[in-house]
Write a protein that binds this DNA or RNA. Structure first.
Length: 556
RNA sequence: AGACCCAUGGUGUAAUGGUAGCACUCCGGUUUUUGGUACCGUCAGUCAAGGUUCGAGUCCUUGUGGGUCUACCA
């Protein structure tokens, strides 16, 4: 068997273990900011961090990076925890908040001041911006850069005590205003904010910046491998600078490329627009790339994990084909989703030689891929529904479905001979008359008739009418936000949701429960939508089955 | 362009100086009481130019192309 190929992060970790770094320990963390919902991109980071922890007998912390009270809310914390659990991961007792470390962080900032590595700057945001220079020209030192340690200590303590207004002063690292890396030009460490914090209340008047809080939080938790996305690459020098100056646990930041999927967007700002402008039903709309949206769409956690692992981990920018995500879902559901009969676009069939009033209960296997899924009973009688597209009066070549003068098999039923179409005054087919072959019952067929097509059906008198929502990609271009000149909203697919209000389902399917995965025979995978009521069931299409017949027709 | 990072079939990812492999997609076929699944097969790749080496996708140089960075956001 081929050796399992390892990604570059696994290679780094294994190298560290081999060298006995940190005694061979591996500790990772997933550090979301509680200011929004998790999406498919986060799923990659979650899987990577937790998988590394598990694979190398280490641990993975969940740490909320809550250093900005202005944008963060408690309810995001709860939703994020729920989504991670749903994905199948657990942080045990290792739930942390950066806000838990505010006191320690404050003391470390004081240490920097004592070492002469930090100073209080009274400049305004605009002044600091101007002093920063550009990528090609060095910045200039702030006039407050030379303050004494005593003055810095005094001012910083008074910042903390709430003596100063927001924006009036900041604490900065004293590094190098001419550094070629803009992030090293005396980055901010603390700013004044009077906003109450969802965890720490009104205890603090100052809040640490990401560039300071993140490395120090990692260090406090003894994180060995701090995995983050590529856009933080230029921040690694600051990360290392703080930990070196502070002399604390030497966590190491490693960057990987974020996940992009075509026909999807993950920008928080743009997703919010979709919701606020009403292009979708909400953050958990089945077309949204959020974890809650994927869940409502009918993606299994297993399929998302498989996907997140399949996309690989590397440092080059990438756009994953959405068909890989769909493949992962079909592959998972094929073996676990019970097959059920649903007629999305009903056409009535009357079997003229079948006794009126008679109902036969047919034995139907639930999943040919899994015998332990068992069997169910399906009614059969004189009047049934089939898909309208499964009947054609004048069919094209290789059409193996119902057409006058031809036999066709009904799955878990009989072989039918199609006799004639009944039409209304405008020529629309209103029902089709057939005769059935008596000794052709599924499982005990002695007719010897060979048919090319097998159709699904729902018996009319026992059918339940439900709603089905079909989904297509939300955008009609692969990268909706590729062109900054064009609003991505203009690329929304107007037919991304197709609501069918008169769908007929078999009795067993009417017992569907939330969280159950179904395959609608010959159609696709479906789940119950939470909008469902006792009286009215609503199903969402997760993904269609592959359809080589449709593909063949499209080419013509 | 100042720094940093990246470059392998259509897409994504392996090959750690020694036969360019795997998955998805596409196309073709076999099986099939799902035009599903499964199975088989075809097409298709090392950004360019130099250099080092017996041997380079891999190391070096230069170029080209792409990405990130000038928030009191993360």
């Amino acid at each position: 068997m081929a050796e399992e190929s390892k990604n570059f992060i696994e290679q780094i970790i294994e190298g560290d273990i081999r060298k006995g770094k940190h005694g061979g320990a591996v500790r990772t963390r997933f550090p979301p900011e509680p200011n929004g919902y998790l999406h498919i991109g986060h799923a990659k980071a979650i899987c990577l961090n937790f998988d590394m922890g598990q694979k190398y007998n280490g641990t993975t912390n969940l740490r909320f990076d809550d250093t900005n009270p202005a944008t963060e809310e408690e309810h995001f914390v709860e939703n994020i925890k729920k989504d991670i659990h749903w994905l199948g991961y657990d942080w045990d007792e290792r739930l942390y908040f950066a806000s838990d470390y505010f006191q320690e962080l404050y003391e470390y900032a004081l240490q920097l001041i004592e070492q002469g590595d930090a100073y209080v700057d009274d400049s305004s945001a605009e002044e600091i911006g101007q002093q920063k220079g550009t990528v090609t020209t060095p910045g200039i030192n702030s006039p407050f850069r030379g303050r004494s340690i005593e003055e810095n200590r005094d001012l910083f303590i008074r910042m903390k005590e709430g003596e100063f207004e927001e924006g009036s002063r900041v604490l900065r690292a004293r590094i190098d205003m001419a550094h070629p890396n803009m992030n090293m030009r005396d980055p901010l460490i603390y700013r004044i904010k009077q906003t109450p914090h969802h965890q720490s209340g009104s205890t603090w008047n100052i809040y640490p910046m990401y560039d300071f809080a993140h490395p120090v939080s990692d260090s406090i938790e003894n994180i060995t491998h701090s995995l983050c996305t590529l856009e933080f690459e230029n921040h690694r020098p600051i990360y290392d600078w703080f930990l070196e100056k502070l002399g604390t646990f030497p966590s190491r930041q490693i960057e990987f490329a974020r996940l992009n999927v075509n026909y999807m967007i993950t920008s928080k700002r743009r997703l919010r627009r979709l919701v606020e402008e009403g292009h979708v039903r909400g953050w958990d709309d089945p077309r949204m790339p959020t974890i809650s949206g994927l869940r409502r769409r009918g993606f299994s956690p297993e399929s998302i994990r498989t996907f997140a692992r399949s996309v690989g981990v590397a440092k080059r920018d990438n756009v994953i084909d959405i068909s890989l995500l769909e493949h992962c879902l079909r592959d998972d559901l094929n073996t676990r989703a019970n097959r059920m009969m649903a007629i999305l676009d009903p056409l009535k069939i009357v079997i003229t030689n079948y006794p009126e009033g008679q109902v036969e209960w047919m034995e139907a296997e639930n999943n040919p891929e899994n015998e332990s899924a068992g069997i169910r009973q399906m009614p059969f009688s004189r009047e049934l529904y089939i898909e309208r597209e499964d009947f054609m009066e004048n069919p094209p070549k290789k059409y193996f479905r119902m057409t006058p003068g031809e036999y066709v098999r009904l799955k878990h039923g009989y072989i039918l001979m199609c006799e004639k179409a009944v039409k209304d005054s405008e020529g629309n087919v209103t029902e089709v008359h057939c005769t059935f072959v008596e000794n052709s019952k599924s499982g005990e067929d002695t007719s010897g008739i060979k048919v090319k097509g097998t159709l699904h059906y729902v018996e009319a008198s026992h059918a339940t009418e439900v709603e089905v929502r079909l989904y297509d990609r939300l955008f009609n271009v692969p990268i909706p936000d590729a062109d900054p000149e064009v609003d991505f909203i203009t690329h929304i697919n107007p037919n991304s949701e197709n609501v069918l209000t008169r769908v007929m389902i078999e009795p067993e399917l009417a017992k569907a429960q939330p969280g159950e995965y179904f395959q609608f025979f010959r159609k696709g995978y479906f789940v119950l939508d939470p909008d469902s009521t006792e009286e009215r069931l609503i199903f969402n299409q997760s993904v269609a089955l592959r359809d080589s017949w449709a593909k063949l027709q499209q080419k013509k």
